[in-house]
């Protein structure tokens, strides 16, 4: 027995979604559309909530971070733990708000993108080096003393920072921004977030330009490869080279 239209009573074709006589949607299709709309509404709301959390936490960290870290030595275990806990905690909370955590942590990609990440790291290093060179005009910063790289600093800078910050910016924030708008907007927004995130250690506005450039490069890799892995590689290589050769 074939189904009939709930409005006009005409018989409906087996795979039809609308009545051919009156144009009314079948009940099944109407339910499907309603469910899709509901899913989309929920998805967008979660994405905005997650993005809001990331922005709020970044701003709070930016303002409160220097006060929290001010009494600690740079690179000490306590400073490292506070910074890492803040970044990972923010990513975890915001990621949970925006659906399954696994979706904010895409790693699968083609190996070529990991190779592309290496010259990309050189580009970001070059940009940072030129910017900082222009900023200091070859003079040493009187307010900055040379800090010996401790084990804690190595772990924080080369391992924890790439994992945590990429997860927060290119994982959680990226997913939310793409859901809300488009990859281009996500690229811009996450690069801004990434730049502001680096004011947490007390770097203030001087950290913004070259961090923003690095955020753009890592975001572009995230966009093109669909994975966090190239961004993590860029970040880790950048930090490793910076701490080893550039001090």
């Amino acid at each position: 027995m074939s189904a009939t239209c709930h409005r006009c009573g005409e018989s409906l074709p087996p795979q039809g979604r609308f009545c051919g006589a009156c144009g009314a949607a079948t009940r099944g299709h109407a339910r499907e559309v309603a469910a899709k709309t509901h899913r989309e509404r929920e998805q967008v709301t979660r994405a905005a909530g997650a993005l809001g959390l990331v922005v709020l936490i970044t701003l709070a960290g930016l303002v409160l971070g220097p006060r929290l870290l001010g009494e600690r030595d740079e690179g000490s275990w306590s400073a490292m733990l506070i910074g890492a806990a803040a970044v990972f905690g923010a990513a975890l909370v915001a990621g949970l708000v925006d659906g399954p955590l696994r979706a904010s942590w895409p790693l699968a990609t083609r190996p070529i993108w990991v190779l592309v990440a290496l010259p990309a790291a050189l580009v970001t290093l070059g940009a940072a080096h030129v910017y900082l060179g222009l900023l200091t005009q070859g003079a040493t910063d009187p307010g900055r003393e040379h800090v010996e790289a401790t084990t804690a600093m190595w772990i924080a800078v080369v391992v924890l920072a790439p994992l945590g910050e990429e997860w927060l910016c290119r994982g959680v924030a990226w997913r939310s921004a793409v859901t809300l708008s488009s990859p281009r907007t996500a690229l811009l927004l996450t690069a801004i977030l990434f730049a502001f995130l680096h004011g947490l250690g007390g770097g203030y506005l001087l950290e913004l330009p070259h961090r923003f450039a690095m955020g753009l490069v890592a975001g572009w890799l995230r966009w093109q490869s669909g994975s966090l892995l190239p961004g993590i590689v860029v970040h880790a290589v950048h930090n490793f080279v910076a701490i080893t050769w550039l001090g």
């Binding site: 074709p13 039809g16 979604r17 009545c19 051919g20 006589a21 144009g23």
Partner: peptide
């Protein structure tokens, strides 16, 4: 493709 006697498309519902 819709049967000739239909007024509305059975897949997208347009007239």
């Amino acid at each position: 493709d819709n049967p000739a006697e239909t007024t509305f498309c059975t897949q997208c519902g347009v007239k």
